[in-house]
Nucleic acid binder design. Structure first.
Lengths: 232, 232
DNA sequence: TCAAAAGTGTTCGCTATACACCCATGG
DNA sequence: CCATGGGTGTATAGCGAACACTTTTGA
C-alpha cells in the first residue's frame, strides 16, 4: 500500500486516529488538569488535552502512555482508556477519531515537559475553554473518575507515597464534591485494612501533627479478589 | 484527497475503523448472544460479533446502530459504546481498530435478519470460539453489563414490556450468576417504586399465576436525578 | 494563651439478610 | 389431590450517619 513519496493509498477512505490524555493531579488543595497550549492551527493558542496520532505499530494504550511520558516524564502512572470520541465534525481538519484516556499522576513526580509545547496545570474548577471537543471529553473523564473512585482506590494514585488522613479525605471530597465526617471517614478507611500506619511527622501548620499512612496494595488486592466494594 | 479510481491517499498511514456490537437478549431462561457466521476469509465459517466498517459520515454510535438494525430490525434498542480495541495484530488483514458497543434487545422484537449473513442466538454459557479477538471483546462486554446492572435498571431492556417478578429475578440471577431470596428481591424492587403493577394474567404452568409489572421510567428518572443507587 | 486542626467512641436508624408457611393452579 | 411455584412478614445483624469534646502544635 505504501507509495514512494510517503503516501498511503487505500480503496476506501479512512479516518485518522489519535489518542488523548486527560491527566489529573492533586496538589493537596485542588484537583488539577494538565493542558498544553496549541502552537499550530487549528485552535492555535488555545489550551487542549495532550494527545497525538496513534502510530501503526502501537496499541492505543501505548500511544497514550507515550503522550503521557512526553508531557510528564512518567512511565508507570495509572492510565486507562475510558471512551472513544468519533463525532463526524469534531476536528475541522477532517475525520479524526480519538481514543481518550484517563491518567492519574502524583504532581510531585512530574518533571516539566522537555517537550516543545507549553504545558501547565489548571485547577479543575478553573479550566479555560478548550480546543476541539475537549470540553466534552473532560466532562466525561471527570464523570468516569467519580464513578471509578467508588470502586477502586484510585485516589492513592494522586497522593504522594506517604500521606495523612486529612489529605486523603480532602482528596475524596474534592473529587466527589461532598463533605465527609472526619471520624466516619477515618474509621471506614482504616477498617478496610488497606492503609499502613507509618509514624508521625513534621508539620508546618499551627495545629496538631497528623499521622501518616501508606497504601497497602497487597491487602487491597486480597480484598478485591474476595469481591468487595469501596463505598462512599 | 480523493483520486479517480476510488482510491484514497494520505501522507501518513491510517488504520481501518470498525464498529462491533455485542447484542444480548434474554429468552426467559438464559442470557443470549447474537452472532453471525463469517462468509468470507479471514475466519471464514467461524462465528463473530456483528460489525462492519465505520462510514466517514457517521458517528461510531450510528455505525453501531446501523449494524444492530441490519441484524435485528431494531432501531430504538438500548446501545452504548463500552470500549475500543486497538491491539496491533487483532486483525490479520492489517491495522483495524474496533469501537465495541453493547446492545440489549428484547428477543421477541427481533425479526430474523433479512441480511445475507446467517445470524443466530447462542446461550452465553455455550458460545463457540469466535473470530478475531471477539472472545476478549465478549468477556469485556459481559463484565460491563454486570457492572452496569448494579446502577441502572438495564434489565428492563431485555424483558418484554410486561413481566413477572420471578422473570425479573431470574434475569438478574442469570446476569450476575448468583441466587437471591425471593422475598428480599421482590420487596427491594417494589420499594424502589420503579415497577407498576398491572393485573394478573394467564399462565401456562402448573402453579400459581404470578403478578405482572411494567417498568416505570418516569419514576426511575425522578429517582435517578435525586441521586440513588440500585444495589445488588 | 489562643487559634487551628487532629484524634477519638457511641448511639440510632436503616437496610440487607435469613428464614417458613400458605395459596393458587394445572394435570 | 398432588406437585409446582408464587406470595407474604418478621427478627437480627451490620453498616452508614450523626454527633462533642479533648489534645497538640505554632504563633
Amino acid at each position: 500500500m505504501k507509495k514512494e513519496k510517503g503516501e498511503y493509498t487505500y480503496p476506501f477512505p479512512r479516518p485518522s486516529v489519535t489518542t488523548d490524555c486527560v491527566i489529573f493531579g492533586y496538589d493537596g488543595k485542588d484537583i488539577k488538569l494538565l493542558l498544553v497550549e496549541r502552537g499550530i492551527p487549528p485552535f492555535k493558542g488555545m489550551w487542549a488535552l495532550p494527545g497525538g496520532y496513534l502510530q501503526m505499530d502501537e496499541d492505543a494504550i501505548d500511544g497514550a502512555k507515550r503522550e503521557l511520558y512526553e508531557e510528564t516524564g512518567l512511565r508507570d502512572a495509572y492510565i486507562e482508556q475510558f471512551r472513544t470520541f468519533a463525532a463526524v465534525d469534531r476536528d475541522p481538519r477532517g475525520r479524526v477519531i480519538t481514543i481518550a484516556h484517563l491518567a492519574l499522576v502524583k504532581i510531585s513526580e512530574v518533571k516539566a515537559g522537555d517537550d516543545a509545547a507549553k504545558a501547565q496545570w489548571f485547577s479543575l474548577k478553573d479550566v479555560p475553554q478548550l480546543a476541539f471537543d475537549h470540553d466534552m471529553i473532560l466532562r466525561e473523564a471527570t464523570k468516569a473518575l467519580r464513578q471509578k473512585i467508588h470502586f477502586e482506590p484510585v485516589g492513592f494514585e494522586l497522593l504522594p507515597e506517604v500521606f495523612t488522613m486529612p489529605q486523603l479525605q480532602h482528596l475524596y471530597e474534592s473529587i466527589l464534591d461532598v463533605r465527609f465526617d472526619r471520624r466516619n471517614f477515618a474509621s471506614k478507611m482504616l477498617h478496610l485494612g488497606i492503609l499502613d500506619d507509618t509514624g508521625s511527622r513534621k508539620s508546618g501548620s499551627p495545629s496538631r501533627i497528623p499521622a501518616t499512612y501508606r497504601f497497602n496494595k497487597d491487602n487491597y488486592d486480597a480484598l478485591k479478589s474476595k469481591g468487595f466494594r469501596l463505598e462512599f
